[in-house]
Design a protein around this nucleic acid. Sequence first.
DNA 1: CATAATTCCTACTTATCCTATAGGAATAAA
DNA 2: TTTATTCCTATAGGATAAGTAGGAATTATG
Lengths: 151, 151
Amino acid sequence: MLSMKAKYALKALGYLARKPDTRFGIERIAEAENIPYKFLEAILTELRKSNVIDSKRGAAGGVKLARAPKDISIGDVIRLMDGPIALLPCASITRYRACDDCPDEAACRLRQVMIDARLAIADVLDERTLADLASRSPLPSERRLTDDDLG
Amino acid sequence: MLSMKAKYALKALGYLARKPDTRFGIERIAEAENIPYKFLEAILTELRKSNVIDSKRGAAGGVKLARAPKDISIGDVIRLMDGPIALLPCASITRYRACDDCPDEAACRLRQVMIDARLAIADVLDERTLADLASRSPLPSERRLTDDDLG
DNA sequence: CATAATTCCTACTTATCCTATAGGAATAAA
DNA sequence: TTTATTCCTATAGGATAAGTAGGAATTATG
Ligand code: FES
Ligand code: FES
């Protein structure tokens, strides 16, 4: 399960993705997406430090995406908030760590299963981006490339 | 990430799956798989209560699988130990729960992505079983059906 | 310049979960 | 009766989750 932090981050970024060039105040986002204000503030600070959003202080300040929605993958947001997507450290590609308890990693069958699982889920999460979260209903113009390729 | 509990459970069950009809002492499993003894004991108690293993007390006691290895999926073990596999409660099939903060679930784009992710990962974890964890190296006789189908 | 709006920073809290560990009771085999 | 083993209850320290509070710094605007 994702943490609330990751979920709120995705919802807030999805909100921003609907008007990528407009700056929105945190309070407005919090209200629109039902996110506790102070909590969202902390989350957005983290996203700013990771260069996902760009913020501006003072009156008429606010936040907006630092890049185009389609260039921010859902997988990356989750990794920033919750850490690796893989189910075991030894199955993570972006943040691999050996398992203390497995003497022979190459022979570990559990690892193989978990690598397969991690590939399957990362396939989905790294292909989808904030652009996919932006619209309310799936419009033809918003379909992903792979769909267009078939036509 | 899986908890240590889930990981240990899978390793211990994988150990038992190598000789499904033999009873093994907990201490022996703990040593073989580098799992803290008392922790493993607690884990196995839970697995017994869920009818995954069958145990026997006293001298020459021990534990063994309650069913054939191929009838215990990895996904089920993870669900027992760590809860739902889905990344959001609203995307879980086995343990669905509505999201408090989303006013309109049907219009929620995040949910759609997470349902796709959950399908992708459950596809892997529910198809693989303890039988896949049983052997040290992938022998031809142990290949999964999908592989054989190609031949 | 004064004011209002807004993000930024530091610190704190409260509850829950994770990862175990300890000690002994119950059971069964030899 | 002894020994080996699981079963049960209780505990515990540390980390993480999910916020909350208060004020400092910055900026637009009149
Ligand atoms: S190497 Fe990670 S589970 Fe075996
Ligand atoms: S309904 Fe669950 S995230 Fe929107």
